[in-house]
């Protein structure tokens, strides 16, 4: 069974009287352990696609099967549970809670699946170790560099043993050197732990880390291929 199966997914937004087709009949499959870059100009539908993959949004028509479950039929809370267990989000702006230590930020997803405090702490420390930040556990986001904050966010995405990491321009706010470090981390996670990584990017440098590039234009997939290697 494929990890992700998208069948004729369309998404229509209503903007006043006008219907905007953000996605038109997108069909594709993603296997476990893939490393995918999603590219396309703004307005191409890639963000909408990522929101649907992340169970933050439902397709207007078509089916999105995640591990064989038709996500479109689930309730708000059921979607929240799936996001909690199967999906880890990494955002361009890091989206850590301010005034909250790195450790507690990483613990956050486990607050919502009822793990006891001790186990939460332990797993959060492990996740921080995976991203090489165990010494920064008590620091608040404001005391961390951009790269460190992004690594805390990745630890938070990992901590519930997510099957998929969805990263929306994860290096958009970082310099080239730090971007490379973050991408190495994704590669390591993808290879070592067989986590499926799907990231949105504008830069072909970043896309080059992946093993498959999906390009969007006007709500459709126009190319689905291996990246251009340097």
């Amino acid at each position: 069974m494929k990890l992700i199966t998208a069948q004729d997914i369309s998404k229509v937004y209503k903007l006043g009287d006008i219907d905007v087709n953000a996605l038109c009949d997108v069909s594709l499959g993603i296997e476990r352990g893939e490393f995918i870059a999603v590219m396309g100009p703004s307005g191409s539908g890639k963000s909408t696609f990522m929101n649907i993959l992340g169970c933050l949004d439902k397709p207007t028509t078509g089916h999105y099967l995640l591990e064989g479950i038709d996500v479109g039929r689930l309730s708000r809370d059921e979607l929240a549970a799936i996001r909690n267990k199967k999906i880890g989000f990494v955002f361009q702006g890091f989206n850590l809670l301010p005034r909250t230590s790195a450790l507690e930020n990483v613990e956050l997803p486990m607050l919502y699946n009822g793990l006891p405090a001790k186990e939460r702490r332990q797993k959060a420390m492990e996740a921080l170790k995976t991203v090489g930040l165990e010494e920064r556990a008590p620091h608040h986001p404001s005391q961390l560099s951009g790269g460190q904050q992004q690594r805390v966010a990745i630890a938070r995405a990992l901590v519930n043993d997510a099957a998929i990491i969805l990263a929306d321009e994860p290096t958009g706010n970082l310099d080239t050197k730090t971007s490379a470090e973050i991408m190495e981390l994704f590669v390591r996670l993808n290879k070592g732990s067989a986590i499926t990584v799907i990231l949105v990017t504008h830069e072909s440098d970043i896309a080059a880390y992946s093993r498959r590039v999906i390009r969007f234009l006007d709500g459709r997939v126009i190319r689905d291929e291996e990246p251009v290697r340097r």
Partner: peptide, 16 residues
């Protein structure tokens, strides 16, 4: 609002 968004994205349910 953003904090609520983050919490929802990582799995907070309605009653959480």
């Amino acid at each position: 609002t953003r904090e609520i968004g983050i919490r929802m994205a990582i799995g907070a349910k309605t009653w959480d």
